[in-house]
């Protein structure tokens, strides 16, 4: 008989591990990734490859040479960051810009704070916002794709960008929408123009439902963001439909679904309690709409999430779980 093991209870463990949870997130992102490949072709595959590979490489190099700790590649968190970063960039982004984004995401936003679990802000979003501020040209002009392996076509802007510009020019929302032929059905299935991940809302929602079913994430945060965005938009649009865009339009554009389903629900940078999550979601939804309506950037999701990320430690402190037998 070999030596018996002795340990405190419990003696069994659930099948969950950090790796299995991250793998579930990767699986949930697959529909969106495949859609982006189908709509944007080989250049999107290139962006995705550069992003994932450089995230993995950087994480490995930093743990190996700077932190001198065992490698954390196996937990797959770098893969998730890589995919999310790629989905947050337009498919036309040059490879070196993607690489810089990865450096900021993994090197600055994640590993500087001590790696997985320690970072305050969502790494992929920090990478994206850094690129948005530093390389606005690459990040805000989009070429209309022509499907898999197709050539580039007309250069355009995102629906939100178009409306923002149009409004500054004095036109009304209705006119602009009619002029550009925006239609909600198209946005739901093939929202051309924008970050790669925004292309197909249905694919993203499919992933979200998968994560909820697997109990990887709880739906509260995402649902409150949607609700807040819809409500805020409804009020403003109700007051002045010429000046403000409506709720459906706001829900379907500008990476809101991507952000609400996959970035705001990141474990590390979101509150743990249900009510904390609701406050967090309301904050993101409201800030997003304020930035969209009144800010100079056409989009607000990334900024809103990062701002609310900063409040997470405070929210965690204020909202605790209800304890058994206590008031």
């Amino acid at each position: 008989m070999s030596k018996m093991i002795v340990s405190p209870s419990p003696h069994i463990h659930s099948k969950d591990s950090t790796r299995s949870l991250m793998l579930d997130v990767v699986i949930a992102l697959m529909p969106a990734v495949l859609c982006s490949f189908v709509f944007y072709g080989w250049r999107e595959i290139l962006v995705m490859a550069v992003s994932v590979v450089s995230c993995l490489l950087l994480e490995w190099a930093i743990t190996r040479f700077l932190l001198k700790k065992p490698s954390t590649l196996c937990d797959l968190s770098a893969v998730v960051t890589g995919i999310l970063l790629a989905l947050n960039l337009p498919y036309t982004t040059p490879w070196w810009v993607v690489f810089i984004g990865a450096v900021v995401a993994i090197g600055v936003a994640k590993m500087t704070f001590g790696g997985l679990g320690q970072n305050i802000w969502n790494p992929a979003l920090v990478g994206r916002v850094f690129l948005l501020v530093s390389f606005p040209t690459y990040m805000t002009t989009w070429s209309m794709p022509q499907g898999l392996f197709g050539a580039d076509a007309i250069t355009g802007a995102t629906p939100l960008g178009v409306i923002n510009e149009g409004l500054m020019g004095g036109a009304s929302v209705k006119d602009i929408m009619a002029q550009h032929g925006y239609d909600y059905g198209q946005m739901l299935f093939a929202n051309l123009g924008g970050s790669a991940g925004e292309v197909c809302a249905i694919a993203l929602l499919l992933g979200f439902v998968y994560l909820c079913c697997r109990r990887v994430i709880k739906p509260w945060i995402t649902l409150t963001i949607f609700a807040t965005v819809a409500l805020t938009a409804l009020i403003f649009w109700g007051v002045n439909p010429d000046r403000f865009t409506g709720p459906v339009f706001n829900l379907l554009t500008g990476g809101l679904i991507l952000g609400a389903c996959f970035m705001a629900t990141d474990y590390v940078t979101s509150p743990m309690s249900v009510w904390g999550g609701v406050i967090f979601g309301v904050g993101i939804g409201f800030l997003t709409m304020m930035i969209r309506y009144f800010g100079s950037y056409p989009e607000g999701v990334s900024f809103a999430i990062l701002i609310m990320n900063s409040f997470v430690p405070l929210i965690n402190r204020a909202f605790h779980q209800k304890k058994f037998g206590r008031k």
Partner: peptide
């Protein structure tokens, strides 16, 4: 000689509270 193998949190306090040792 070690008679069994401890597999809990690597702390003498935790180990001592659990049993007489390995």
């Amino acid at each position: 000689p070690r008679l069994n193998e401890y597999d809990g949190f690597a702390s003498c306090a935790v180990k001592a509270a659990l049993y007489s040792g390995d």
